[in-house]
């Protein structure tokens, strides 16, 4: 009897230990997949970055300085190109859906700036038409090849790479995919990688606009 009870206690103890190990393992796996700081859906930068002071040309043909000419309380910056079939449409379409859900009070305080990494093909007209497909409020900027490289350097993203053109003159452009969020103190503490969902934006944007500072 005593042996049976002892076995029972031992078995329960072993069972609990196994459950604890499994739960611990699951927690470890979950934390291993989560690269964001608690509560923030974007990727918090290890070091804050200053909003780049570059001037390019907007789709009306006017000079546009990223710091002086953005009017909202949050500037979102992305480099891409209008022939992009995969990354850019999903990124812009998802952000637009989130802004629509959040409403004008939030959307009006956000400046989405899309800088073309393919200025040769992306004329101001093409850039404007492309962005209007998402939002007439999205800002399109274009520079010379040299200005575009400088802008990427200042934004601390890798420079885009243009593939060689094929027989039809078509080429792809490799580009950084994150959207960088500069708050109204001119500092970015968080970026949003490709794959950020509308729900993620809807959680983070109001917090960023409220002046919360993401920290790792």
């Amino acid at each position: 009897m005593a042996d049976t009870e002892g076995n029972l206690v031992r078995n329960v103890a072993i069972g609990l230990a196994v459950v604890a190990v499994v739960l611990g393992g699951l927690a470890f796996v979950a934390s291993g997949n989560d690269t964001s700081a608690p509560g923030w859906r974007g990727r918090v930068l290890p070091e804050a970055e200053t909003e780049p002071d570059f001037t390019l040309t907007d789709t009306s043909g006017d000079p546009f300085n990223l710091i002086e000419d953005t009017t909202g309380d949050l500037t979102l910056l992305m480099f891409g190109y209008t022939n992009c079939p995969d990354i850019c449409p999903i990124s812009l379409g998802t952000l637009k859906a989130a802004l629509d859900d959040l409403g004008a009070d939030v959307a009006n305080r956000v400046d989405m700036v899309f800088v073309t990494a393919d200025p040769d093909r992306d004329t101001p007209e093409r850039l404007r038409t492309y962005l209007d497909g998402y939002s007439t409020d999205f800002i399109g900027l274009r520079g010379t090849a040299e200005q575009t490289e400088q802008a990427q350097d200042l934004a601390n993203v890798p420079r885009a790479q243009l593939e060689d053109a094929d027989a039809d003159g078509e080429y792809a452009v490799g580009h950084a995919t994150q959207i960088i969020a500069y708050q109204n103190d001119g500092v970015a503490r968080i970026v949003y990688p490709f794959g950020t969902r509308a729900e993620d934006w809807k959680i983070d944007l109001p917090r960023l606009l409220a002046g919360e500072h993401p920290s790792a």
């Binding site: 995969d86 790479q161 490799g174 950084a176 995919t177």
Partner: peptide
Amino acid sequence: EDLDGISIMTGADRLDVPTGSTLELDPG
């Protein structure tokens, strides 16, 4: 493909679908 922080897209003549496999065409 994601190479050194940039997303590089290249044309392909073929995408293999070996026996017993699933070729997943996905965003990104």
